[in-house]
Design a protein around this nucleic acid. Structure first.
Lengths: 262, 262
DNA sequence: TTGACTTTAAAACGAACGTTTGAAATAATT
DNA sequence: AATTATTTCAAACGTTCGTTTTAAAGTCAA
């Protein structure tokens, strides 16, 4: 029988080591020998316990996502039960979906920042087995939340909501992945930041907490933004758009948005 | 002397093939033999013309980013000249930065969707040489736009602006990368979309055009969203937040945001 | 303790990797 | 035409890859 005394420790040690190394180097650049050496197990252990390197990656994600997505569904269930038929508020839906994930970053028992970063980076992985894995793993959750947003925003075209879900997923994944592009954004002169805690400051649970506090208003603002006007290439505007030789393209967006800084 | 008659064709053929294959498979999963076979050149040609596989990837990006970032700086220069000392509108800044990039997706001579997707996927690449390359390549542009946003939003803390720049970059990169996670979001039932052009519909320049029209309002909405309240864990609220056993964490965001669907 | 499993271990498998080599072919210069 | 420089080519370099194999060690029920 599998998963007994020490075997479980072996499996978990492999998963932990793989989780960290996949996050640090990416899937392709992480070798089996690197993983098994970090986990202090034999090279053949991965193939024995998981079957292949691909299956290992999937198990690394399944271990965390099972709880996360179950929690997401359960939370939405409860919210809708409490709402008693009325549509939910968009902020409640976003909080349930993104808040659940971001809370993982605060708890190292759930994977912590390591898993969050791994997730953010792997979501853009082109490998076919990765994409189909995420597709089936996320399908029911995404669908439930999509329906909830449709009900919450009855006047917004469904296609528009789907697009914005995609944008929100992207903002979160990217923020979570926390590559060093952010170091570029932050800039080398910390003088601007005045110690207020810009991105990439610490790695603890506080980072995830602060990230959630900053990200959620941004996502809500994006979700509730005015719809784009799809009028035919409108009367020319003041500003620029001097694309190399391209047709006037960009400025069909601005008109419908009034400028209210902050 | 380098870059003469046919040699230039060889270099360009390699760059084109690499651009597409890196986009399709990722950097690590794309071998030199795959690239040179697709470019119909000898295996040694890459090392002869570029020095190494890493240098090839950098050149693939430099070829496109040089124009893009130059255009971005020039556009901002002109906007500020026309504004005559007054701070720019956020929408102008975003249009200059993101619009320039998205216009690349409409023009196959500038790389088209292939380059956009490659860029989006590579920005989360963990490899050190990739990150430092992007850091130095993007540094001056990001800094100029950062300063412009500081002036455009004088009442918003600088740290908050930097965070939101990061979120906007993420939303764009992810949307651009266009992995199949979007297929999950869209769902298998196209009935919801009513033919209105949901994500992942076509691959032509129209895709980039439509993406820009949808993305820009989202980004502006996120950038101008109400600031998060950093008050100490506030008086408890109505809703949920039943984290597994965790401390009350998530709901310090919602209070400051009024619910105005759409 | 015997016997049937399960897990670890060391070694090797063939394949594919990025890169280098040195000679042949091509182009440019004198 | 002779000579120099540049580019292409086939072949091989040594390494590392994911996986398999075969045997030893460990575990547990009878």
């Amino acid at each position: 029988m599998t998963d007994q005394k020490n075997n479980l420790a072996t499996r978990e040690r492999i998963l932990d080591a793989a989780e960290w190394l996949f996050m640090e180097n990416g899937y392709e650049a992480t070798s089996m020998r690197l993983i098994t050496r970090a986990a202090a197990v034999n090279l053949a252990a991965v193939n024995y316990h998981f079957g292949s390197k691909e299956a290992l990656l999937c198990e690394v994600f399944r271990r965390r996502l099972a709880w996360i997505n179950h929690e997401r569904l359960q939370l939405l269930d409860r919210l809708e039960r409490e709402a008693d038929g009325a549509p939910l508020k968009p902020s409640q839906i976003l909080e349930a979906f993104f808040g659940t994930l971001l809370r993982v970053g605060e708890d190292s028992a759930l994977g912590g920042l390591t898993f969050l970063r791994l997730l953010g980076r792997t979501l853009t992985e082109p490998a076919e087995f990765v994409r189909s894995f995420f597709a089936t793993e996320y399908a029911p959750v995404i669908d439930r939340y999509k329906q909830a947003l449709f009900r919450a925003l009855p006047d917004v075209p469904h296609a528009e909501i789907v697009w914005r879900m995609h944008f929100m997923l992207g903002a979160m994944s990217y923020a979570i992945a926390g590559t060093d592009v952010i170091r570029v954004v932050t800039g080398h002169d910390v003088s601007d930041m005045a110690g207020e805690g810009g991105p990439g400051e610490d790695d603890g649970p506080m980072f995830a907490r602060r990230l959630a506090q900053r990200l959620m208003p941004f996502l809500l603002g994006g979700l509730r933004a005015p719809l784009p006007s799809f009028a035919a290439p409108p009367a020319l505007h003041s500003q620029s758009s001097s694309s190399p030789g391209g047709p006037g393209s960009g400025d069909s967006i601005a008109p419908s948005i009034q400028e209210i800084p902050q």
